[in-house]
Amino acid sequence: MSAAAHEPQARMHFAAFSGVPVLLGITVLLFALHIAVGAKPLPLGTVLEAIFARDATVFDHMIIWDLRLPRALIALAVGASLAVSGALMQGVTRNPLADPGILGLMAGASFAVVVTAFFFGTAPLVFLPWIAAAGALVAALVVYFIALWAPGGATPLTLTLSGAAITAFLSAIISIAHLLNEDSFENLRVWLSGSLAGRDIEMLYITGPWIAVGLLVAFSLARQVTALAMGDDVAKGLGVKTGWLKAQLLITVVVLTACAVALAGPMGFVGLVIPHVVRLFVGSDYRWIVPYSAILGAAYLLGVDIIARIAIAPREISTGIITAMVGAPVFIHLVRMRAR
């Protein structure tokens, strides 16, 4: 981190600022493109027209408003939430391998949703994010303590392994629940593969405000995360109340992850990849890492979802499959780098 930090500060900040409009531009472009492509390709002009001058009688406008716009918005929200969760987790655990998927939060969230559905039938949509959040929170704590109790403590390696173990365990139970109640699980099945297809815009209305709150809290805590990333003692020395900060961060991460899972199902490796890419450009200051992760995460998931829809058209690949294909090699690279 020191190499980047000792760069001339002014130039770095300028560079950091200047990236924002570029990245936002790219995101907007991808957003429009995302809406334009599909089974019936629509010209960008129609897309803009539909958004800014909606005519409910035009069939293309209906497609855009009822199908494509929700999906694009969901991709945007999920990408931003997961990337910011990942960034915060990496900062607070000082673990470059941290990601809501790798550390078991997604499995916990999915598990909670499935178990609820199993015992109480389909719960009202409003509760879904909260059930997911409870599952994610419990899983996060279990993973953390398993790693902590391992001799050597909660190192990136033990955290990752206990995350993988918990994920394997919960997935097995989820699969069994599936088999036992196949019919009512058909909806959940698509959801569990981490797909953005056919998602309900209702859910976005429910989770949207929470995602917004979560992102705002993340932005406001980012400065302290930078201190925390240098070690608990350093942070304390700088006047950060580490215990309280960690609790806030944990809640933020859990809420963001749960909302993302409720929206799109488990989507692996987004939270791992994006913060690392961001770090290449803005260094180790979380005041920059967090907002950039949000924008890049949104752009990334839009891009991936475009590929998911057009790669083997007319069929569709689950978006989660592609994020895993991209993310797993990054993960491998990080493990190798860490080991030097």
């Binding site: 391998l97 390696l157 990752t160 392994l161 993988a164 692996g268 490796f269 499959i321 592609i322 895993a324 294909m325 993310g327 797993a328 090699p329 993960f331 491998i332 493990v335 190798r336």
Partner: peptide, 14 residues
């Protein structure tokens, strides 16, 4: 083991 987990995630996605 970690690398194995990464590799198996990659292969499973394929």
């Amino acid at each position: 083991i970690l690398l194995g987990i990464g590799v198996s995630a990659f292969i499973s996605s394929i």
